[in-house]
Lab assay of single mutants.
Amino acid sequence: PEDLERKVRELQKNGVSPEQIEKILRRDGVDEREVQELVKKVS
């Protein structure tokens, strides 16, 4: 979803590592495939 992507970009802009971003997304209940997609987009 659009807002998730925005969140991921925000986190990355704040210097959060892709690994941390993955953890955060998983903790928020984002589905694994979605997590991978989002992280791939920003890394």
Rank of each mutant, 00 (worst) to 15 (best):
R26C: 04
E32Y: 06
R6F: 10
L25R: 00
V16N: 07
R6P: 02
R9G: 02
S43D: 06
R33C: 10
Q12H: 15
P1S: 12
L11E: 00
K7R: 13
Q20H: 06
Q36L: 08
D3L: 10
P1C: 10
V30W: 14
L38C: 05
E22R: 13
K40L: 08
K23V: 12
P18E: 05
K23N: 12
E5Q: 09
K23S: 11
R26I: 13
L38K: 01
P18A: 11
I21A: 01
I24M: 11
V39P: 01
D3C: 14
Q20W: 08
E10L: 14
V39M: 15
L25K: 00
K13L: 11
G29A: 02
G29F: 02
P18W: 15
R26M: 11
P18K: 13
E37H: 08
G15C: 08
R27P: 01
R27M: 12
V16R: 06
V16G: 01
V35K: 01
E22P: 02
R6V: 07
R27T: 07
L4T: 04
R27W: 04
K7Y: 14
K7S: 03
Q12N: 07
L4P: 03
V42N: 05
D31E: 08
V16H: 13
K13C: 08
D31I: 04
L25H: 00
L25M: 04
D31M: 05
D3F: 11
E19A: 11
V39H: 02
S17Y: 02
D28R: 13
E37Y: 08
E19H: 08
L4Q: 03
V16I: 10
R26L: 13
I21E: 01
R9L: 08
E34M: 15
L38S: 02
K7N: 02
E10G: 05
E2L: 13
K23E: 14
K40I: 06
I24N: 01
I24V: 04
K40P: 03
S43P: 05
V16Y: 15
E19C: 12
K23P: 01
K7L: 12
S43T: 13
E37F: 07
V42P: 04
P18Y: 13
D31A: 09
R27V: 05
G15I: 00
D28Q: 14
S43R: 14
E37D: 09
S43N: 10
E10H: 09
R27N: 10
R6H: 08
K13A: 12
Q20Y: 04
R26Q: 05
Q20M: 12
R27D: 13
D28A: 15
E22T: 12
N14K: 13
V42C: 09
N14T: 07
L4A: 04
R9S: 04
E22V: 15
L4Y: 06
K23W: 11
Q12V: 15
S43W: 15
R6D: 07
I21H: 00
L38E: 01
V16Q: 05
G29M: 03
D28F: 14
E19I: 07
N14E: 08
K23T: 11
V30A: 07
K41E: 05
E37G: 05
L38R: 02
Q20I: 09
R27K: 08
D31L: 06
E5L: 15
E5Y: 14
E22Q: 08
G29W: 02
S17D: 06
P1L: 13
E32H: 04
L25P: 00
L4I: 07
K41Q: 08
P1V: 12
V42A: 09
R33F: 08
L4K: 03
P1E: 10
K41P: 04
R33V: 09
V42L: 14
E22F: 13
V35R: 02
